[in-house]
Design a protein around this nucleic acid. Structure first.
Length: 284
DNA sequence: CCTCATTCCTGCGGGC
DNA sequence: TGCCCGCAGGAATGAG
């Protein structure tokens, strides 16, 4: 599941393959992959064709590619999305959704997505930050992230800590896996009421999120090669570095107690009942 | 305004 | 053996 470290790895891998390249043709193989682009597929194609890409940027789990028109191509990988750089004569991938061919006849940029939870769009405001993702907060590794503002925001909320970590308008880039890992590292329960989060505790969880994301980026840097940017290449380091996620009944690496799994928000939370004590007044 | 349930989608794997 | 069903989840959306 692509979260910040995987998306950042993809961004780094794509940067030199999009710089100063002119889009010659856009083929939409699956209409649902053009998402949150209200004027529709034809408009999406028209706004991209003939435009020059000038960079590869990221906000949380969103990628965007500024265009010389002032717009930007915006991409979200969802659950299973990949942005691949492949030779233009390579056969179509099984779940190919959108294909961009370039005027230089160099490799395509292809959006491949098995579950089509992700998608592409063209949005205005691409030179700075596309309008459509203006509500996404800075990520905690960004120098512009406001620690004090985050702590104040937590106290204003009336919800559980994990829900707040997953709220991309509070802090971006954290998904279910890294949320569980960061909470374990910070020794905090997922249902901890946010209104009880003092500044030191907020700083503790931020520190844990930063450590987890940084280590994952460092490990994920090897998951692509020059012509193949593979989001699923994460599996090598993923399994080894996870302490609680997906490890129900296995001993906690810190205290040895069996890791527990809770059904929550239509997904799973993994946590250690010893290291992460359930709060007296948990939020659902 | 704020919080939270619902919905989208497909392949995999467990159970019968 | 083969089928069915649960599960995986980000984020927009609308209900309350």
């Amino acid at each position: 599941m692509p979260e910040l470290p995987e998306v950042e790895t993809v961004r780094r891998g794509l940067a030199r393959w999009v710089l100063d390249r002119v889009v010659a043709e856009v083929v939409v193989a699956h209409p649902r992959a053009v998402r949150r682009h209200l004027p529709g597929e034809a408009d999406f194609v028209a706004l991209l064709t003939g435009r020059t890409m000038t960079a590869a940027r990221r906000r949380g789990k969103y990628l965007w590619f500024p265009l010389d028109s002032g717009d930007a191509l915006v991409a979200h990988l969802g659950m299973s999305g990949q942005l691949l750089v492949v030779p233009t004569d390579a056969p179509a991938e099984r779940h190919l959704r959108v294909r961009l061919r370039f005027a230089d006849a160099g490799p395509d940029l292809r959006f491949v997505d098995q579950r089509t939870f992700g998608g592409l769009s063209v949005a205005a405001g691409g030179a700075a930050l596309p309008d459509s993702i203006a509500h996404i907060a800075h990520d905690p590794l960004d120098a512009a992230f406001d620690d004090a503002g985050f702590a104040a925001g937590l106290r204003r909320r009336r919800t559980g800590l994990k829900r707040a970590l997953l709220d991309q308008s509070m802090v971006s880039g954290v998904g279910n896996i890294y949320a569980d890992e960061a909470l374990w590292r910070a020794r905090l329960h997922w249902a901890r009421p946010t209104e009880t989060m003092t500044r030191p505790v907020a700083d503790r969880v931020l520190g844990a999120v930063r450590a987890v994301l940084s280590e994952a980026i460092a490990s994920g840097g090897t998951s692509f090669d020059a012509l193949y940017v593979d989001v699923n290449g994460e599996s090598g380091y993923f399994e080894r570095s996870l302490n609680v996620y997906g490890r129900e009944h296995e001993p906690c690496p810190r205290c040895g107690r069996p890791i527990r799994r809770s059904r929550w928000m239509n997904r799973s939370s993994y946590w250690c009942p010893q290291c992460q004590r359930r709060p007296r007044h948990p939020h659902p």
